[in-house]
């Protein structure tokens, strides 16, 4: 936990510096303008476009330094903790659940929302939850069907169908 605290503070500090750098970017229509020209207050014009994000990012950077000081002096609970940041269960669950979510996102582009929901629920309920095949199939099939009637038919929000689009054309003819 202690190591994770300082690594996270360092990464967030780097992100803050990146935010500061981006805040000072000149506008696309005047690329020759000096960087960081927009972070000041101009008389009769008020603060520039980068003023608010730049100084807030600087405060973020200051907070990261403050967190690092607290870490060095062992003042925050994570900096005192000798426990692992994630134990074996946590790492396993993160890989299985996080990986499952990324798989879900990738599948949406291939099978569309309804196909991806079916596969994701099958994976989660059967493989992670170890529920019976009967209840897994019942839930995994019911959710996309309810989803189709709720979103596409009732709300007229057409969710992406991916390569399964042709399968839905007869349904569109009937319900839409």
């Amino acid at each position: 936990m202690r190591r994770a605290e300082i690594i996270t503070a360092a990464l967030l500090g780097l992100m803050s510096v990146y935010f500061m750098w981006k805040s000072g970017e000149p506008p696309a229509w005047n690329p020759d303008a000096p960087r960081f020209q927009n972070i000041w207050i101009v008389l009769d014009e008020g603060p520039g476009s980068g003023f608010w994000p730049f100084w807030l990012s600087l405060v973020m950077l200051g907070c990261c330094v403050w967190i690092a000081v607290n870490w060095y002096r062992r003042q925050s609970p994570p900096s005192q903790s000798e426990e692992p940041f994630l134990d074996s269960f946590g790492i396993r669950q993160l890989l299985l659940v996080g990986g499952g979510l990324f798989g879900f996102l990738v599948l949406i582009h291939i099978l569309g929302f309804y196909g991806a929901i079916f596969v994701f629920l099958l994976y989660y309920i059967r493989l992670l939850g170890r529920h019976s095949i009967k209840s897994t199939l019942a839930i995994s099939s019911a959710v996309p069907v309810i989803g189709f009637f709720f979103f596409d038919v009732a709300m007229r929000i057409i969710l992406p169908k991916g390569y399964l689009e042709p399968l839905f054309i007869p349904l569109y003819d009937i319900f839409l």
Partner: peptide, 26 residues
């Protein structure tokens, strides 16, 4: 183990339904 995946599904579908944009879902 049944509730959690249903909430994940609801979160992804809800975000897409709000803005109809996959970038926001990612």
């Amino acid at each position: 183990t049944i509730l959690a995946p249903l909430i994940f599904v609801l979160s992804l579908v809800g975000t897409y339904a709000a803005y109809q944009n996959m970038f926001d879902v990612w």
